[in-house]
Nucleic acid binder design. Structure first.
Length: 745
DNA sequence: TTTGACGACATTTTT
DNA sequence: TGTCGTCAAA
């Protein structure tokens, strides 16, 4: 008890109240940086400490694995024990766990595969083809979006089918129902169905429902504002046993409505869960008062808020900096300079983050950081498991563990190229549909047919190989098996040839990725465990505590905090995103504003906001970007605007036209570069080394130390006519064209 | 029938 | 930057 009290000392009054109230329904409205994770972890600790529950009687759901892991590690520290067999995870991973144990009630086998969006689209694409629905009029993506929307709202296809009146609705209902049937037939499950199937099981089988209701004495939910209607339904079933639930949320941080999140869930909390009360956490421990003030002033422009008032005891802090740049290269350069300055002041790179609206915008920063050798990490972004070569390997593993996995087979049937093209694939699909069998079975039927051609022979070889690997699965360990599949299928060979042919950067890291993949396999006992992990877990950021700058989207920054935060790309159209406003009007804009609120409140000490004149999306466009309206919504007295002439839009436009007719001799370096960018289309890198710029030819010597934009520093081993063999410090030996090498000053 | 090359094209956010 | 469709060659 002493220990507990000591722990509670670190909490404020409201937080203690929130921790102590364990029975009934509690909604905690927790503003940014008000210590909600702290409350949740203390609550778990409190429940255990007071012997109110055993570890497996607490269900804690979050939205990201990051949040779940954070919670686990904090609790584990408090109780001084590792966490095993606990029910702390994302909605999806907890659902998957329940579903694996009871899949037969929804006609899935135990080893069902969880598919991602790419597979979903492929499936819908095939359905459109089979049902002769014109894909040019309405794309598969369109259908998927609508289907997802229905699923998030807990509407199944039979309800849709009955209501469908016009042709469009009927098509949607048809695709939806075919899609669901196909998933079952292929023994697959998409993300939403993890939730929906669970509810289905609860409905169909009272025993199972009772068992879970009995087990989960206390339910804790993080980021409640991000739940959708189906997830709330899921919670209701599990809650109805002991009726103890505690949800933490912040309506101002709801940024996932495009994924079906309903802020309404917060508003209806009192109606849905009995005996409820609510607590507001409004003291912010994270940011300076100035940052809080900016964030509050900004978010006030939204209507329909609960209207919390965040306050803080922290210092008032430095002014927020607003910087305008001419092009993304300049932005990256200036920011990296600024980061180096901070770094010289002994600020750890881990405490610095660059947040962007669009994941792809990391590019200019990556280039720059590689250039000057600043270490960085990308959180989120293109996930490792989303890479083409990784998905290929996974598909090989999927088909051998589940022969009815058509999507996996279709992916690899002609990778590497075996001469089994579109035409043959169509024939196979027709056979499969006619016999209502899997694609794999269809291949066998095809082999029995009278046709004789090259494709048939190749299919024969592939089929027997798959069967062979399947047998070996029992004998070999999973890593050896994967290695042998990669060799035997010719996949490795394909990558090697590719590498030799295109000896440039395009495919330089495919092989590395495969190696990393094999390495990652070691953490798992078998392939099935690994496949589960791959589909559910989103972890680019392993225990990487080394000192690096953090790059990520504003969305993935939620829940994180940094001393210094750079917010880039604050341009109208980029942020707030043009599409978001076009598609959802005012509510779209308000969600963008909430995103800005989230971004601002990530910072502890200071914020640097920047915007760029150059159009980020196209290289040739002369479009002029204007600074984001969100900048003008911030309180002027808290800002330090470095480039006022650009900031005032009238001047901004005038200056630009002067540049275009090239009559102005007052050119700043930034403008010069921009002009150059427009007038000369050589994509040589003119930025790195001004001295070599005028030389028609760069002269290199063997043994010379050089720099390459992608691979970094290296030494020239051997020079040929136009290219050189370079030994890079990080990337090893590469053949590089001389024109891509940069001399060091 | 398959494959590679070429040009046009559009580019949010994620479990 | 990378993907998609089209076209001609193998």
């Amino acid at each position: 008890m002493e220990n507990m009290d000591k722990n509670l000392n670190y909490l404020n009054e409201k937080q203690i109240e929130a921790v102590n109230k364990t029975e009934g329904s509690l909604l905690i409205l927790a503003g940014a940086g008000s210590g909600k994770t702290r409350v949740l972890t203390h609550k778990i600790y409190y429940l255990l400490h007071k012997n109110l529950a055993l570890p497996n009687q607490i269900l804690a759901v979050t939205f990201t694995n990051k949040a779940a892991n954070e919670m686990k590690s904090r609790v584990s520290k408090m109780i001084n024990k590792p966490i095993e067999g606990w029910w702390i995870g994302t909605f999806h991973s907890v659902s998957a766990k329940i579903l694996r144990r009871n899949s037969e009630y929804v006609n899935l086998k135990k080893d069902f595969v969880i598919i991602d969006q790419e597979d979903q689209l492929k499936l819908i694409n095939k359905i459109c083809e089979a049902k002769k629905i014109d894909k040019n009029e309405k794309s598969p993506k369109y259908f998927l979006n609508i289907i997802e929307r229905y699923k998030n709202k807990f509407l199944n296809y039979s309800e849709i089918t009955n209501k469908a009146k016009n042709l469009d609705d009927k098509n949607i209902a048809l695709v939806y129902s075919e899609y669901e049937k196909e998933l079952i037939r292929l023994n697959c499950c998409d993300f939403s169905n993890l939730i929906l199937h669970c509810i289905d099981i609860f409905k169909k089988n009272k025993n199972i429902l009772n068992q879970y209701q009995h087990q989960f004495k206390y339910i804790l939910v993080d980021e409640y504002q991000d739940t959708n209607f189906s997830q709330q339904e899921w919670l209701k079933y599990l809650y109805s046993g002991h009726k103890n639930i505690c949800c933490v949320g912040d309506d101002d941080q709801s940024i996932y409505s495009w994924r079906g999140a309903e802020i309404k869930n917060i508003l209806s909390f009192k109606k849905v869960f009995e005996n409820s009360s609510s607590i507001n956490l409004e003291q912010n421990y994270r940011s300076t008062q100035r940052i809080l003030n900016c964030a509050s002033v900004l978010i006030k422009n939204n209507q329909g808020r609960y209207g919390k008032k965040l306050w803080s005891d922290n210092d008032y802090g430095e002014k927020i900096q607003i910087n305008g740049y001419w092009e993304t290269k300049e932005e990256a350069k200036e920011i990296s300079d600024c980061i180096e300055k901070l770094n010289r002041k002994k600020i750890s790179l881990n405490q610095i983050a660059i947040l962007m609206r669009v994941a792809a915008h990391t590019r200019s920063f990556e280039e720059r950081f590689l250039n000057i050798g600043l270490p960085y990490r990308i959180i989120g972004g293109t996930r490792f498991y989303d890479r083409k070569e990784i998905k290929d390997v996974i598909s090989y593993l999927r088909i051998i563990s589940n022969l009815s996995d058509n999507l996996a087979l279709e992916r690899i049937i002609n990778v590497p190229k075996r001469g089994i093209g579109q035409k043959t694939l169509n024939t196979l699909n027709i056979i499969s549909r006619k016999n209502s069998s899997s694609l794999f079975e269809a291949c066998k039927f095809y082999l029995e047919s009278n046709e004789s051609n090259k494709a048939k022979n190749e299919i024969n070889i592939l089929i027997s190989k798959i069967l062979k690997w399947r047998k070996l699965k029992k004998e070999l360990n999973h890593i050896d098996l994967t290695e042998m599949i990669l060799e035997d299928s010719g996949y490795m060979n394909m990558l090697n040839i590719e590498k030799e042919q295109k000896d440039n950067f395009q495919n330089y890291d495919r092989l590395d990725n495969i190696a990393e993949f094999l390495n990652g396999l070691q953490e798992f006992e078998n392939i099935d465990g690994f496949l589960e992990h791959v589909s559910l877990v989103f972890d680019n950021d392993k225990f990487d505590s080394t000192n690096k700058i953090n790059l990520m989207t504003m969305h993935s920054a939620k829940g994180l905090e940094f001393d210094y935060v750079f917010l880039i790309g604050w341009e109208e159209g980029v942020f707030p995103s043009k599409r978001s406003i076009e598609e959802n009007g005012k509510s779209g804009l308000e969600e963008e504003r909430r995103l800005a609120y989230v971004a601002l409140t990530r910072a502890k000490k200071n914020i640097f906001i920047s915007y760029v004149n150059e159009n980020r999306y196209s290289y040739a466009s002369h479009d002029i970007n204007t600074p984001s309206r969100f900048i003008s919504e911030l309180p002027k007295e808290d800002l330090e605007i470095s480039n006022t002439e650009i900031f005032q839009q009238d001047n901004f436009l005038n200056e630009f036209s002067q540049i275009e007719d090239q009559s102005n001799e007052y050119l700043t370096p930034g403008k010069k570069r921009m002009l150059k960018h427009f007038t000369n289309n050589r994509n040589d890198d003119f930025e790195f080394n001004q001295d070599t710029e005028n030389l028609t030819e760069k002269i290199f010597r063997e043994g010379e130390r050089i720099f390459h934009n992608k691979f970094g520093y290296g030494k020239i081993v051997n020079i040929e006519e136009q290219a050189a063999l370079v030994n890079f410090e990080k990337a090893g030996n590469k053949m590089i064209f001389l024109k891509y090498l940069n001399k060091l000053v």
